[in-house]
Design a protein around this nucleic acid. Sequence first.
DNA 1: CGCCAGCACTCGCAGGGGACGAGTGCCAAT
DNA 2: ATTGGCACTCGTCCCCTGCGAGTGCTGGCG
Lengths: 338, 338
Amino acid sequence: MSDDRRLDVLRAIVHDYVRTREPVGSRTLVERYSLGVSPATIRNDMAALEEGGFIAQPHTSAGRIPTDKGYRMFVDQLAALKPLSPPERRAIQTLLDDAVDLDDVLVRTVRLLAQLTHQVAVVQYPSLRRSAVRHIELVPMTSNRLLVVIITDNGRVEQRVVDVDPVDPAVVSELRVRVNAASVGQRMPRLGADLRDLAEHFTPADRPLVEAVTDAVRETMVEEVEERVVMAGTANLARADLDFPHTIGPVLEALEEQVVMLRLLSEMERDEAVSVRIGHENSYEALAEASLVTSGYGGSTNDAVARLGVLGPTRMDYPSTMAAVRAVARYLSRFLAS
Amino acid sequence: MSDDRRLDVLRAIVHDYVRTREPVGSRTLVERYSLGVSPATIRNDMAALEEGGFIAQPHTSAGRIPTDKGYRMFVDQLAALKPLSPPERRAIQTLLDDAVDLDDVLVRTVRLLAQLTHQVAVVQYPSLRRSAVRHIELVPMTSNRLLVVIITDNGRVEQRVVDVDPVDPAVVSELRVRVNAASVGQRMPRLGADLRDLAEHFTPADRPLVEAVTDAVRETMVEEVEERVVMAGTANLARADLDFPHTIGPVLEALEEQVVMLRLLSEMERDEAVSVRIGHENSYEALAEASLVTSGYGGSTNDAVARLGVLGPTRMDYPSTMAAVRAVARYLSRFLAS
DNA sequence: CGCCAGCACTCGCAGGGGACGAGTGCCAAT
DNA sequence: ATTGGCACTCGTCCCCTGCGAGTGCTGGCG
C-alpha cells in the first residue's frame, strides 16, 4: 500500500468535498479521479487515512470528509501555488493605482481580497510602533479642547482630543514647535523619553498642557492602543452559511471584536510567507470551523510591517485562496514601497 | 364595531407577534390581552383589519401577522416613547465621556446603539459640506508625494495623498501658508472659489502643485465624495436570522455598500425626530423585510448635521428601539455641542 | 504482498399516509 | 353590536417503510 497513493486519495477527497460539500465515497472517487485502482483498494486506503485521523465519516453509511488534520496535511503537501490569472492581476494593479491615501489603499485592498476569494477579508493597519513621527499638529478646537494630529512616515494619520485648561495661543505655538523638534523622525520607545524631557522648557503653569499633549502622543504611538483592522466581505459568510454548524453568529461576533482578530493575526508567523490556521488550530472556540489564511506585507522579506488575510470555512479552496492572499500581499507591499 | 378596539387589536397582534414570532389567533389574543370581548368579536375585527391591509395570514389555517402597513399604523399611533432606564442612561453617559476624538465618539456610539437595541447600528459622519476648514497641513511623504491633511471645525480629520513633481520645500511652506489663509473658516462652495484664485500667486512652474493640492481640498470637502458611515452589531443579524425570508446574505451585502446605506439615510426626514422606514417603504429590494429607525443628531433642532439609527427585521420592538435611538441621538448631540 | 470482486450489513433519508389541532368564517340568538 | 356554536380548511407532526449509498470483510488471483 503506497504512501503516495494514500496522499493522492486524501487530495482527491479534499478536492471533491470542497467542490460538492458532500461526503465522498470510494466509488465516486475512482469515477472522478483517475486513481487507477478499484474502489475496494481505495477503501483500504481510506481506512488507513481514517485510522491516521485525516478523514472521518459523519455517520456510518456516509462517505468521508477531511478532518482539520487532513486539511493540514493537504495544505502542507501543496507544492506550488498557481499564480493568478492575468485579468486578476490587472484588476489588482488598476484598483490600487487609483488610491488616494493610506486608508483608501487598505480599504481597496481588503475589498479586492474579499472579492477574489469570496470570503471575509481582513487587513491590519501598519504597525505604529515601527513607524516614526513625521509631523505633529496642534489645533485648538474650543477654548479648552485641543486636537492633536500625528502623522507618521508611512502615511498614517492619527488624531486625539485632549481636554485642557484655557490656554494662551502663543504657548500652543511654542509647544507645537518643541513637540515637533522632539518627535520628528523618532519612534517608540526613544520617542517617549524625549517627550518626557520637554516639560522643563515650560513654566509650571503650562506643564499640565504639555503633559496632556505628550501623553496623547505617547499613547497613540504605543502599538496596542491603536492597532486597527479593516474588514470586508462579511456578506460572503452568509453564502458559506451551511459550512458552519450552528449559525454564523459566533463567527460574526468574533469578527466584530477587533481585539480578537488582532490577537489571531498576531499569533500567525511573522514573516511574509502565506500561513494557514485550520479549524481548531485557531485557539478560539467560535472559529473551530473556520480557517485563517494570512500573509505579512509591507516590510523586508522576513520582517513584515503588518498582516492581511481572509477568513472562511475550513471547507475552502486552499490553493486558490492562498494564491490570492499571496498575490495581494505582494502587490500591496510593492505599492507601499513605491 | 369601535375603531378604538380595532386599534387595540392591532396593537395586541403586533406586540404578540414581535414577542413570539408566531402568527396570533383570536383565542390567544383574548387570553393574553384583556380586551373584554370574546374571540368571535375579535375575529370580526381581524377580518376588518385584514380587509384594510393591516394584517395578513401566512396560510389559511394560521393566525394573523402584521403587514408593513400594520406596523406603520402601529408606529404612527405610538403616543409617547418610554424613556430609557436609569442604568441605561448612565451607561451612555459614562461611555461617551471617555472618548478621545471624533472617530472614537462615533465608534463608541454605534457600538452602544447596537448593544442597546440588539440590532445593527449605523452612524453617519457629520457632513463635511456644512463644516468649515480649521486647518490644513501639508506633509511631504516622499520627494514626489505630498500628504494633505484637512482638519474641520467639528473635529473631523481628512487626509489625501497627491502625486506631484519633486518640489522645493520652500514652495511647500509658502503654499501651506497661503492655503490656510484662503481656507480657514471657509466652507463649500465659497471655499472652492477662494482656492481657485490661489494659483496666481505662484510661478507657472509651481502651478501644477498648487492645483493638485487645492483640488484635493475641494474634492475632500464636497459632500458626496467622503461621506462615511460606521457600523456595529452585524452579528445581531445572525440572531434575527429567522426573520429574514431566505437568508441574511442580501442584507449583509446592502450593509457593506456604504453607498446604499448613505442613500437610505439621506432618504429619511432631515430633522432630529425619530423616523421609521418599514419593509417595502425602503425602496431597496434586499431590505424588503427590514426596518430602519433613525434620528438626526448634532445640529439645531430641525437641521441635523447627520443621522444615526439601526436596522433590523420589520418584526422588531419599535417602541424600545425608537426610544433607544432617540436617547442616543440626544446624548450624542449634547456631547458634540459641549 | 498488493489488489480486487463479491457479499452481507448498517443506517440516513426521502416519501407517503394519517391523526391532530389551530384557526377561520358564517349564522342564528341575544 | 356581541357571542356561542359549528362545519370546514389546511399545515404540521409523526410514524413507517423502502431505497440506496457506502462500508468492512473474506477469499481468490497475479
